[in-house]
Amino acid sequence: ENVVSAPMPGKVLRVLVRVGDRVRVGQGLLVLEAMKMENEIPSPRDGVVKRILVKEGEIDDTGQPLIELG
């Protein structure tokens, strides 16, 4: 899985990584606010952040691509 998608609709509060960062499975990639709760979205695998497809403050839909890993 190279693309991390939104598991729920919500607002992107914080992006915790930058392009080029090495990430490990379970590491937080970004924080979504949904139903007044903050949810940290973890990396599904080890890899390198290739692209960040959303910006802080954006509203996303379920299934929307958020981050691409390489």
Rank of each mutant, 00 (worst) to 15 (best):
A34R: 07
L29V: 07
E40W: 11
A6M: 09
M35K: 11
G20C: 11
M35G: 14
L29D: 01
G70M: 14
Q64N: 08
Q64Y: 10
V12S: 01
M35P: 04
L13W: 00
L16Y: 03
V19R: 05
A34N: 13
L32F: 15
G70F: 15
M37E: 11
R22S: 12
G63A: 08
L66T: 02
V25T: 12
K50M: 11
L53P: 02
L53W: 12
K11G: 03
L30P: 01
G28K: 09
V15K: 01
P7T: 09
V4S: 03
Q27F: 05
K55Y: 13
G47N: 02
V3H: 09
G70V: 14
V3N: 06
M8K: 07
R24A: 11
D21G: 04
E56W: 09
P9R: 13
S43Y: 03
M35Y: 12
G26W: 04
E33N: 03
E1P: 13
R51M: 06
K50L: 13
T62Q: 12
V31W: 04
L66F: 05
G63H: 09
G47E: 02
G57K: 04
K36S: 14
P7E: 06
V15D: 06
I67Q: 01
M37F: 09
G57N: 07
Q27D: 10
M35F: 13
R24I: 12
R45E: 05
M35N: 15
L69R: 01
S5C: 15
G47K: 01
M8A: 09
S5G: 09
P42T: 14
R51E: 08
S43H: 00
V23T: 02
M35E: 13
I59C: 11
V54R: 04
I41P: 02
I52M: 02
R51D: 06
P65Q: 07
L69M: 07
L30T: 01
A6H: 03
D46Y: 08
L32P: 00
V15C: 08
G63F: 07
E33H: 06
R18W: 03
I41R: 01
N39Q: 14
P42S: 11
T62C: 11
R51K: 12
V49R: 02
V15L: 11
K11P: 00
A6N: 07
